[in-house]
Design a protein around this nucleic acid. Structure first.
Length: 599
DNA sequence: TCTCTCACTTC
DNA sequence: TGAAGTGAGAG
């Protein structure tokens, strides 16, 4: 029983979406119901507001990443820190005075990202790790100045395809390779106050991309808490598959301690223009040139200057001219002008409303196949400017609350772009002022997304503008229909998504940590199980099931079998519970886990 | 396709 | 000054 790496891309429940999700969270929750405490949480006590939290005395405080990395590098198995470290329960976690926040995130250097995106951004991955360029930078606003936040970033597979660069364009070359271990990058300044975050551009330039599955820059969560196992690890390098398409995600978590992450609400933001294909060597010359032109470190390769590129150019200039002359005479024309847009086709298509389909999910719609004719490609090129214009509407995303828990049908316009998102949304939310031009005019409820019975792409403008996926639902575990833009989720005001909930009393007016989904609080496992059989309509009330509904209703070619999954989950739940019992009883040694994680 | 080394860059 | 970040290009 294991979710695929790409699972979070799939629209689903906010719970299922949670990056750490705890595909085994329900198991743990069940154990809690039965009175078992998670292993390594020696004296777990529940704070008065119902939240469950622990903190490490300073040891894991800021800068979190440095210390986590340090622990990893010094060979200290992080998983061993749990029982040995002086864990202490948060005694009286006073219900904080929680100032309402309404985070908005603005992508920095959007124009540059757009330039790359329309050509099909490539990011080089190496064994030792390469940085992203352009670097992922955002500016936050709307945070509670005094509250502390942890900012994170991860990169998820954008679809289920493997690509190849053929005839100057990216084409689908088959099904995606097996997923790599998932990694979450915690911004090294975390946690910091909202004021601090808002005072500067938050940059994730230190995150590196690698194709080295043995990479040692990752480490598991310092606990054998079931919810953390086998899902995400943390690290400064994220492992990707070459020739696969990826989508970076940005997360805001209101929490003053990293150990509260599993219990906290994630607000997730996607910027479609940051999508890219991982490569070990650049495929598209235009991307190479863009990198050279814009990356300071690549200055030496610019035409202007005395770098080796210039020297080399001079040396080969003559031979190139001879070749060009001959080539033109033979072909009469050059494909130079068309290749630029052509290379973008697979990117543009993935986000263009024009290619949304109604009906079952069709990979070919997501990823242009090689069989696609040039004529078709040409026609798609015309979409490019339009799509880009839509993208320019805003780079600021907002996690907007949704009060729309309507039926799937009522949400279809959001999903398929039948009408401008703002209109549809505004009509459903008359009390919500029209968003300004910088902010998302659209808000999609998680249930709506999850309930999409068609598996079609989310229209680009909508997804783009409503990228706030707070709680964003990107979850789910379908191996076929997954698209980050579908992972939009919003909830009724202030009802934020909690990674998983522990079934404890949740008093009204509780803090952030008490915002677990009611359905899950009532019994996560049961809720999930119920959701398995739920009809699309019923999912509106059971967020945790939306993932599954989405899966069952959208995948025509999915290999996922729901019932077996449920069975296996229950079996695993039982096994997990037994394991926890043994651990609590000290009868079982902690399993040593690979720091780099395993798929 | 991928890995490694190189010359060149920034910081 | 040196560590680290670049794409090129050979293999």
């Amino acid at each position: 029983m294991s979710l695929s790496m790409r699972d979070p891309v799939i629209p689903g429940t906010s719970m299922a979406y949670h990056p750490f999700l705890p595909h085994r969270a329900p198991d743990f929750a069940m154990s809690a119901v039965l009175g078992h405490q998670p292993p390594f949480f020696p004296a777990l006590t529940l704070p008065p507001n119902g939240a469950t939290a622990l903190s490490l005395p300073g040891a894991l405080a800021k800068p979190i990443m440095d210390q986590l990395v340090g622990a990893a590098e010094t060979g200290i198995p992080f998983s061993s820190l749990g029982p040995q470290a002086p864990l202490r329960p948060l005694k009286a976690m006073e219900p904080e005075e929680e100032v309402e926040d309404d985070p908005k995130v603005h992508l920095e250097a959007k124009e540059l990202w757009d330039q790359f995106h329309k050509r099909g951004t490539e990011m080089v991955i190496t064994k030792s790790g390469r940085r992203m360029f352009p670097p992922f930078k955002v500016r936050c606003s709307g945070l509670d100045k005094k509250a502390k936040y942890i900012l994170l970033m991860d990169i998820i597979a954008a679809d289920d395809c493997r690509y190849k660069f053929h005839n100057s364009r990216w084409m689908v070359a088959g099904k995606a390779d097996p997923e790599m271990p998932k990694r979450m990058y915690i911004h090294p300044d975390s946690p910091a106050t909202g004021e601090q975050w808002m005072s500067k551009v938050v940059t994730f330039h230190k995150l590196k991309l690698t194709n080295n599955i043995s990479d040692k820059h990752g480490f598991n969560w310092p606990s054998d808490h079931a919810a953390w196992q086998g899902n995400y690890s943390f690290g400064t390098q994220t492992i990707l598959n070459s020739m696969h398409k990826y989508q970076p995600r940005f997360h805001i978590v209101r929490a003053n301690d990293i150990l509260k992450l599993p219990y906290s609400t994630f607000r997730t933001y996607l910027f479609p223009e940051t999508e890219f294909i991982a490569v070990t060597a650049y495929q598209n010359d235009k991307i190479t040139q863009l990198k050279i032109d814009n990356n300071p470190f690549a200055k030496g390769f610019r035409d202007t200057g005395n770098g080796r590129r210039e020297k080399r150019k001079q040396l080969t200039l003559q031979s190139i001219r001879v070749f060009d002359e001959r080539h033109k005479k033979e072909n009469g024309t050059s494909d130079e002008s068309s290749s630029e847009h052509a290379t973008f086709s697979c990117f543009a298509q993935a986000s263009s409303p024009a290619v949304s389909t109604v009906g079952t999910s069709n990979l070919k719609d997501l990823c242009p196949s090689e069989a696609e004719s040039d004529a078709e490609a040409e026609s798609k090129e015309e979409l490019v400017p339009e799509t880009c214009d839509a993208a320019k509407i805003s780079t600021t995303t907002s996690e907007e609350p949704s009060r729309d828990k309507g039926s799937p049908a009522s949400l279809k316009p959001h999903l398929f772009g039948a009408e401008p998102s703002g209109r549809a949304r505004d009509s459903a939310r008359p009390d919500k002022a029209s968003p300004d031009s910088r902010h998302s005019p659209a808000t999609i409820s998680s249930s709506g997304l999850a309930m999409s019975p068609f598996g079609s792409l989310f229209p680009y403008p909508y997804t783009y503008m409503a990228a706030a996926a707070a709680a964003s639902s990107a979850a789910a575990s379908s191996s076929v229909h997954r698209h980050p833009f579908l992972s939009l989720n919003s909830m009724r005001p202030r009802l934020r998504y909690s990674p998983y909930s522990i079934p404890v009393p949740v008093p009204d007016g509780g803090g952030l940590l008490s915002s677990a989904l009611p359905a899950m609080a009532a019994g996560p496992l049961d809720a999930k199980a119920a959701a398995l059989a739920a009809s699309p309509a019923s999912v509106a009330a059971v967020d945790s099931g939306s993932e599954l509904n989405s899966r069952s209703s959208t995948l025509s070619s999915s290999s996922v079998s729901l019932s077996p999954k449920l069975c296996s989950e229950k079996e695993a739940a039982t096994s997990e519970l037994q394991s926890i019992q043994r651990l609590v009883s000290g009868l079982e040694a902690k399993p040593e886990r690979s720091r780099s994680g395993s798929p």
